[in-house]
């Protein structure tokens, strides 16, 4: 464990807690893409299949349970909670996220480190996580104005990915045979997707104006 990875995990944890807090306290999910949340729930479900068979550490297991629990409860809130679901903007959140799932699954079947069920599902979760933010970014562009909690949520998610890249650089130089192109490339693609959001987020912060993305 290195400081970049710990900071990355904590930032990732903060992002889901910010979102859960927003939904739970103000009972609203305005501006939040249910499609992205469903994709994240699928990502964690496919990535943590070995949660009970491959014990890494208490920290690892606890964090996996938190990510599984939070992502599924956010989806539950947005789908079934009688108050929250009313604030879900389903005719704006129209990204066909099934078009993301299938190509990621095919790619995972073609490019993976080992052709076993668990390894393919794990690789699928990496590719899917790389694109899972797209429906949310599209929704932000559509709804123009971003309430600061949703903006903070996306910002923290991007920061977690950036810190993970620093973690991989650190591990590459400190652990002799730590080379994982699949993880690195999908993580890099994911981080690049946030680049333009970061740019507009920074601009709005610098000019101290409401964040809005160009159409």
């Amino acid at each position: 464990m290195n400081i970049f990875r710990l900071a990355g995990d904590m930032t990732h944890l903060a992002s889901v807690l910010v979102l859960l807090l927003k939904i739970h306290t103000i009972k609203s999910c305005a501006g939040v893409s249910l499609k992205t949340q469903e994709l994240y729930a699928l990502v964690f479900a496919c990535r943590y299949l070995d949660i009970f068979t491959n014990f890494v550490s208490l920290y690892n297991t606890v964090m996996k349970l938190i990510f599984l629990g939070s992502s599924f409860s956010i989806v539950w809130y947005m789908r079934y909670h009688k108050v929250v679901r009313r604030s879900y903007d389903k005719d704006q959140d129209t990204f066909r996220h099934y078009f993301l799932v299938l190509p990621c699954l095919v790619l995972a079947l073609l490019i993976n480190e080992k052709f076993t069920f668990k390894e393919v599902m794990w690789t699928f979760s990496l590719y899917l996580e790389a694109v899972a933010i797209l429906p949310q970014l599209v929704l932000l562009q559509r709804t123009r104005n971003i309430d600061n909690l949703t903006g903070q949520y996306v910002f923290l998610l991007g920061a977690y990915r950036g810190l993970y890249i620093l973690n991989w650089i650190y591990r590459y130089f400190t652990e002799p045979h730590f080379v994982h192109w699949i993880t690195w490339i999908s993580g890099l693609v994911q981080t690049l997707l946030y680049a333009d959001f970061f740019y507009y987020y920074y601009q709005s912060w610098k000019n101290n104006q409401k964040l809005h993305l160009p159409a």
């Binding site: 995990d9 070995d50 491959n54 890494v56 550490s57 690892n60 996996k64 794990w122 045979h177 730590f178």
Partner: peptide, 10 residues
């Protein structure tokens, strides 16, 4: 084997 050392990440 080296594959599993990437599995210690979340």
């Amino acid at each position: 084997d080296d594959v599993d050392d990437a599995k210690d990440e979340l």
